[in-house]
Design a protein around this nucleic acid. Structure first.
Lengths: 216, 216
DNA sequence: CTATGTGAAGGTGTTCACAGCA
DNA sequence: TGCTGTGAACACCTTCACATAG
């Protein structure tokens, strides 16, 4: 069950959330070698932060030299399980859901959308990107059949909690929710990430015309 | 310049980011009175958190009773400047940019999109929602003319830094970026919030199939 | 007697400063 | 010598526990 060495410390969420930015910076730089200073610059963080984050998982660098860009990228991909062929299901094939499928088709994110479902018979059967929209009834079956580990919820608020519960029940442990409502999760092993544009814009309004504070 | 009482403490960003969730919960509940317990439940936080957050701005509740939902909602709107008619400009009228305008037209977020610009002559002049796409050249003019305080960047990575710089130069202090790249901000009074779907999904992959960790 | 408002305690993440190693 | 790896100091945020007010 342990994924990395015995000292499998509890990794801060914030560290995990920075790793993809490091990965992107690493693949963008062609250089063989890269220092924590330069990597931090590219990713938008400090060099100490970079070193601390990476050190949670091992000693990947060479003192006095830096990191090997290609092999560090491999390490980060391994840490994030991006070498494991992670598959996601999109629930809700409305405007947002279909946009998500297309977006993921285009960007090489190392996470594949493996199914799209909707409750509306008028939508079921349509083609979205490389997929055909299936019935919401088949949610559990699809998760099992296609070995899906991630859920992306893009349904109206009313149906969202039930969708989340069903995903969790069938074993999904990572969920991305675009639903403009707080969802309840009891299982502590489930990680739910919310993306809520209205909330973001309202929070940003606070910083309009103010003269204070720092960066997120 | 001080917006709230003299003890204008430095408010944690995390507090600001929770306020919109409280506001949504408050407007959803019809009840006159609401306790911090209930409000926390609806918004997805603890009651202590709710009380602490609100207490940064004043004493809005009645001991032994709770808060008045309507007047507390007004207070939160005031704190976030949502009563100030905050206006935003969307830069980039591609798929994402146009989707953003339409989304904001529909959801009552209290932040209005007041302009959309693009660099592509083929797109300039088109109608998106209630707006006409204008030339990127007019960015500064539009920000001034329409008293815009917020920028939303939805352009390809290559042009993003220049757009950010121009927005900051003309006085915009709050920016939402959908660009899949880290952007540099030197001015400490400028707040930039990034939303990057690819990064979010890659970070989520870490939690797929793991048995640990907690909620964000 | 109830639920707020808040100092104090606790926990978590970041920055500092330098020891360690190529 | 140069840059990594890391304990220790620090800052920040959350949780606790209770005094306070209606």
């Amino acid at each position: 069950m342990e994924r990395y060495d015995i000292r499998a410390r509890r990794i801060p969420d914030s560290t995990i959330r920075r790793l993809p930015a490091y990965l992107r910076a690493l693949t963008r730089t062609g250089n063989e070698r890269i220092t924590s200073e330069r990597l931090g610059q590219l990713a938008g963080y400090t060099s100490e932060q970079v070193r601390k984050d990476l050190a949670y998982f091992g000693a990947f660098g060479t003192r006095g030299v830096g990191y090997d860009a290609a092999s560090l990228a491999d390490e980060v991909r391994r840490i994030l399980q991006l070498d494991q062929n992670v598959r996601a299901i999109v629930v809700g094939a409305g405007r947002l859901g279909t946009a998500l499928v297309r977006h993921t088709d285009e960007s090489a994110s190392d996470v594949a959308i493996a199914a799209v479902v909707d409750i509306d018979p008028a939508v079921i059967g349509r083609t979205v990107g490389h997929l055909t929209v299936e019935s919401l009834d088949r949610l559990e079956a699809l998760v099992v059949e296609r070995n899906i580990g991630m859920g992306i919820i893009a349904v109206p608020p009313a149906g969202a909690q039930s969708v989340l519960d069903r995903l969790v029940n069938v074993g999904v442990r990572a969920v991305l929710s675009f639903v403009p409502r707080s969802l309840a999760v009891t299982n502590p092993d489930v990680f739910v990430q919310h993306i809520d544009l209205t909330l973001e814009m309202q929070a940003l309004a606070y910083f309009v015309g103010s003269t204070a504070r720092t960066q997120s």
